[in-house]
Each structure stands twice: as structure tokens, then as C-alpha cells.
């Protein structure tokens, strides 16, 4: 097990190297000069050249890359050109908000998607089945940012306890306070703020989970051992929950992992709509400002988190189904 994890971690290295080169080329070959954007419309040519020299943008590309790489290997992702703050700081202060949004979105998606999928599969052909399938299809076809806009104007404006924007306190912190001090207010305040953006993002994922759970349940329910169990006279509900669900969840877990990764950076527009202080917004603004160090560091961090999540998925796979071996 440990050997497997180590091997997977080692395999990440060339991948990350490749990503860093790709991103480096992508941003440095694109039109747009970070120094000009920093200086604004009133810059003189002399100032532009002076700052380019200060930041080392006048050096050949490969030298700039190796400079960046050698710093990155020592854990230094550089300093934002525009803000003058270390990229590690900028990323870490937003990581909490992004993870929180992703986690709550996943929870919503899972909490609604899996039961819906199960019911749909068990009551195949019923009204519930049709309803959940239609819901799933519409959900997967709706762009999250548009849903967000609609939720803002049609829900948040009418429901007093739903705020319009922003984040208020960390949910993780709120949970901790709930456990240690038995106070629920901080957690609630956090949840109140995260709810709408999480629904906007989670809906698409819920749809995917519902569909997958349903089809995967149907497949398992058709298998011989389930039929045998039923024939043996085991209670129907027990069969469904204990035996079938366990096996049916395997593909669902995989998709949760992949979707979780996509959520980390994919919620860019939704983050903007709700003024959520996440990593996606940071990176997209950096792309617009050609703030190279942030783009480089941010994408790299996303890739690392994504790879780690996938690793976690593969491990949890084994926990659900011990028959899978690592080799």
C-alpha cells in the first residue's frame, strides 16, 4: 500500500514538470505585457523598460524558466508582479474558500444525487424515476454561472436569510467551534453564505451522480448474487442498501474525484458572480493581468491537488472493495 502511494507520487513529478513547461509557454508566448498592465495607460517607454529589467523579463525564455524552476523546487513560487505578494501566500489564503465551496458542492450533490439515483433505480419506470432523470438531464445541461444569476435574482432576493454574496467565516472553523464550544452560529453563518454558490456548482454534479448511481445500481441489481440474495428471502431494503449499493458506488466515487478536481478551478465564473474569494478567480484575473508567477503557481497547485484527490479516490476504492489490489 505505502509502496503504491510512493510510486504514484513519484509518477506525478514528470507530469508536473510537463504542466509547468506548458503553462510557461502558454503565458509567455501570449500577447500582453505584465509590466504595461502594471503601469497602466500612463506609462512611459522608459518606465516599461526599467521595470522589465527589474523583473527579469528581458532575459531569454529558457533562462527565465530555469530561474523559476530552481526557485519552485525550493518551495518558492515567486512573487506576484502586480501585488508584490508571494504566490504561496496568495494561493494558501484562498485555498480554504475554494476547498470549502468544492466540499459543500460535493456534499450537496452526493446527498441529493445518490438517494435520487437509488430510488430511481429501485422504482424503475415509476414517476420518481422519470422525474429524477429529467432533473438530472436539465441539471447537467445548465451552465452553473447562469444558474447562479437566476438563483440570485429569483431566490436570494426573496429569501431573507440567503445573502447575496461573499463568504463569512470558514465552515471548517465553524465545525470546530461547534464541536469544542457547542456553538452553532459561526457554522450557520458560513453555511448561509456558501449555500447558493454551492448549489449553482453542485447541481451539474448532482445530475451526473444521479445518473451514474442509477445506471450502476441497475447493473448491480441485475447481477446473479443479488438475485440469489433476494431468492434467499432477504429483506429487499437490506439487499439494496447492503449489497448492491456497496458495489454500485465504485464508479460513482471515481466520478466524484474527477468532478472535485474540476470544481477547484472550474468555478471561475460562479465565483465572480457571488464574489467568492476563491483560487479560480485569482488565476483568471492573473491570466488577464499576465501576472505570470500567479498563473504558473496556481495551475501547478491545482494540478497537485487534482492528482492527490485522484490518488485518494483510488485508495478509497480499495476500502469500499477490498478485492481490488494495488499493482
Amino acid at each position: 500500500m505505502i509502496r503504491y502511494i510512493v510510486r504514484r507520487l513519484v509518477q506525478m513529478i514528470p507530469l508536473l514538470l510537463g504542466i509547468s513547461i506548458l503553462v510557461f509557454l502558454l503565458v509567455h508566448l501570449s500577447p500582453g505585457d505584465p509590466v504595461r498592465m502594471l503601469l497602466g495607460e500612463e506609462a512611459t517607454e522608459e518606465d516599461v523598460e526599467r521595470l522589465n529589467a527589474i523583473y527579469g523579463f528581458d532575459l531569454p525564455l529558457h533562462i527565465q524558466y530555469f530561474r523559476w524552476l530552481s526557485n519552485a523546487l525550493r518551495g518558492n513560487l515567486g512573487v506576484s508582479i502586480r501585488q508584490g505578494i508571494s504566490v504561496t501566500t496568495l494561493l494558501s489564503e484562498r485555498l480554504g474558500a475554494t476547498l470549502e465551496l468544492a466540499v459543500v458542492s460535493v456534499l450537496i450533490a452526493v446527498a441529493l444525487g445518490i438517494p435520487l439515483g437509488i430510488i430511481a433505480a429501485v422504482r424503475r419506470g415509476s414517476l420518481v424515476d422519470y422525474f429524477s432523470m429529467i432533473l438530472a438531464l436539465v441539471g447537467v445541461s445548465t451552465p452553473g454561472f447562469w444558474l447562479g444569476l437566476m438563483l440570485l435574482t429569483h431566490v436570494a432576493l426573496k429569501v431573507d436569510f440567503l445573502p447575496m454574496f461573499g463568504r463569512d467565516g470558514s465552515i471548517f472553523g465553524g465545525l470546530w467551534i461547534l464541536i469544542t464550544q457547542l456553538r452553532v452560529d459561526v457554522l450557520l453563518e458560513g453555511l448561509r453564505h456558501v449555500l447558493l454558490p454551492a448549489v449553482s456548482i453542485g447541481t451539474g454534479m448532482m445530475a451526473i451522480i444521479t445518473r451514474l448511481t442509477r445506471s450502476s445500481m441497475l447493473e448491480v441489481l441485475g447481477k446473479d448474487y443479488i438475485r440469489t440474495a433476494k431468492a434467499k428471502g432477504l429483506n429487499n431494503q437490506v439487499v439494496v442498501l447492503k449489497h448492491a449499493l456497496r458495489n454500485a458506488l465504485l464508479p460513482v466515487i471515481t466520478i466524484i474525484g474527477i468532478q472535485f478536481g474540476a470544481m477547484l478551478g472550474g468555478a471561475v465564473v460562479t465565483e465572480t458572480v457571488f464574489a467568492w474569494p476563491g483560487v479560480g478567480r485569482l488565476i483568471v484575473n492573473a491570466i488577464r493581468q499576465r501576472d505570470f508567477p500567479i498563473i504558473q503557481g496556481g495551475v501547478l497547485m491545482m494540478a497537485v491537488v487534482f492528482a492527490l484527490v485522484n490518488l485518494a479516490v483510488d485508495i478509497s476504492y480499495a476500502l469500499v472493495n477490498p478485492r481490488i489490489r494495488y499493482d
Partner: peptide, 18 residues
């Protein structure tokens, strides 16, 4: 100070008293 990039969202937040 709260930073709200979308003009529509900022106005909604204002009207809601946030």
C-alpha cells in the same frame, strides 16, 4: 470594504442591506 466585482451582484447586496 467588501469587493464585489459584478455590478448586478453589488446592487443586489446593497438592496438587501448587506
Amino acid at each position: 470594504f467588501r469587493a464585489i466585482p459584478e455590478n448586478a451582484t453589488r446592487l443586489l447586496a446593497f438592496e438587501a442591506g448587506e
